[in-house]
Simulated assay, not measured.
Amino acid sequence: MAVPTFVYDGDCSFCATCVAFVERRIPSRARLVPWQFADLEALGLTVEQCEKAVQWVGDVTASGADAIALLLRDAGRMWQVAGVALQWGPMRLVARPVYRWVAEHRHLMPGGTPACALPQARCE
C-alpha cells in the first residue's frame, strides 16, 4: 500500500502548529506536506481545494474533518478510535460544520496570524 499524504496550508501558523502536534504525538504513516511544496497535480488536488481544507490522499481522498479522521485512523490504537468516532454519522454531522467554522476563523485561533486568513490564490 502506498504511503498516504496529508496536505495542509504551510503559510498558516495555526495549521503548522496543529501539524507539529501531529508530528510529535500521532504516529501516522502519512507524509505531512504543506500544499505550497506539494505536487498538487500528481496528488489530484487544486490550490482551491487546499486553501479550503486539509486534504488526505491515499487509498481514498478526503478533505476537512474527513481527512483528519483518516489521519487518526491511520495512526492506530487510541487515535484510531477517535478517527472512527469522527466518521460516525452523528459525530460527522457535527465535525464537518465545526471544521468549516475553524477553517474560516483559523486566523483567530491560538497560533493563528492575519496571514492565515488570506486566500493564497489571490495573494500577489
Rank of each mutant, 00 (worst) to 15 (best):
94 V>E: 01
114 P>M: 13
1 M>A: 12
101 W>Q: 01
4 P>I: 11
42 A>D: 13
83 G>M: 08
90 P>H: 03
12 C>T: 03
21 F>P: 05
90 P>W: 03
96 R>S: 06
65 A>I: 07
18 C>G: 14
22 V>E: 14
11 D>G: 10
25 R>C: 13
5 T>W: 06
21 F>M: 09
39 D>H: 08
81 V>N: 05
8 Y>N: 08
5 T>I: 05
37 F>K: 11
102 V>A: 11
9 D>Q: 06
73 R>Q: 12
17 T>H: 13
109 M>T: 08
81 V>E: 10
11 D>K: 08
62 A>E: 08
93 L>W: 11
1 M>C: 06
74 D>H: 10
122 R>V: 12
102 V>E: 02
73 R>P: 01
63 S>T: 14
83 G>Q: 11
55 Q>G: 01
113 T>I: 13
109 M>G: 03
53 A>H: 06
63 S>I: 03
28 S>H: 09
73 R>V: 04
113 T>V: 14
106 R>G: 05
54 V>N: 01
88 W>H: 14
43 L>W: 06
54 V>Q: 02
47 V>H: 00
1 M>E: 10
51 E>P: 01
22 V>F: 10
48 E>Y: 06
12 C>S: 12
83 G>Y: 05
55 Q>E: 09
87 Q>D: 12
115 A>G: 06
61 T>H: 14
3 V>G: 07
81 V>T: 11
42 A>Q: 12
93 L>F: 05
27 P>V: 00
29 R>N: 10
111 G>P: 09
100 R>Y: 08
42 A>Y: 15
114 P>F: 09
60 V>W: 15
